[in-house]
Amino acid sequence: MKKILALLLACVLAFACVGCGGSDEGAADVKSEGVMTYAEYTAAALDTQVVIEAYVQAKQSWWENQATVYAQDKDGAYFLYNMACSEEDYAKLTPGTKIKVTGYKAEWSGEVEIIDATFEIQEGSYIAEALDVTALLGTDELIKHQNEFVSFKGLTIEAITDADGVEHDFLYNWDGSGEDGSDLYFNVSVNGATYQFTVESYLCGAGTEVYEAVKALKVGDKIDAEGFLYWYEGVNPHITKVTAAQ
């Protein structure tokens, strides 16, 4: 009887371990040999080689064997720009997929990214919860969350002005020069300040839920939003979801 019980417990333990292995939610972010922690990555100088492990959060684009991807671990986020990637491998980069990336740290107009990178898929999965950074808008603290999956609560849609000085609910391209399918730009206010948000057409193009939702917004609407904290000469969130404010 004891032997049967011991066997049963061993089986339960084994299954429990396997179960944990299926998702890394809540587990500590243990890096492999030779891989940087997020803190080490942050401390690394620009133009130096970096090796990181992170989990794909969203894919932005693939062209001519180069993929641009938002990735994140439990401590911070990474923007992987034009990473070497076959079309076949790109299909495997579903949200949550763990990858080991070797590339060079770079900065382009304030956006810190990893370029000239290669990657390999590893075992593991993690999808980040959106971090509410509403209170950090306009503060120096915000940049510490660059590239992270974030949320903004209680935003009010404000008018945005095109190149001719005409006010709109949103614009195709920053000056209104685009058309359906172009990047969308819209203004939101919160805590007494106004910020410009973007729906990046490569990340979420025409026909996606967020793209169509933003086209339907009207000045004065109250919304919550989620997206990635991209940077271009200042914060430039790339929005992936908008809903009516809760």
Partner: peptide, 9 residues
């Protein structure tokens, strides 16, 4: 093609 320029469109 335009240079993201409303005047051109």
């Amino acid at each position: 093609k335009n240079d993201t320029n409303k005047a051109q469109t």
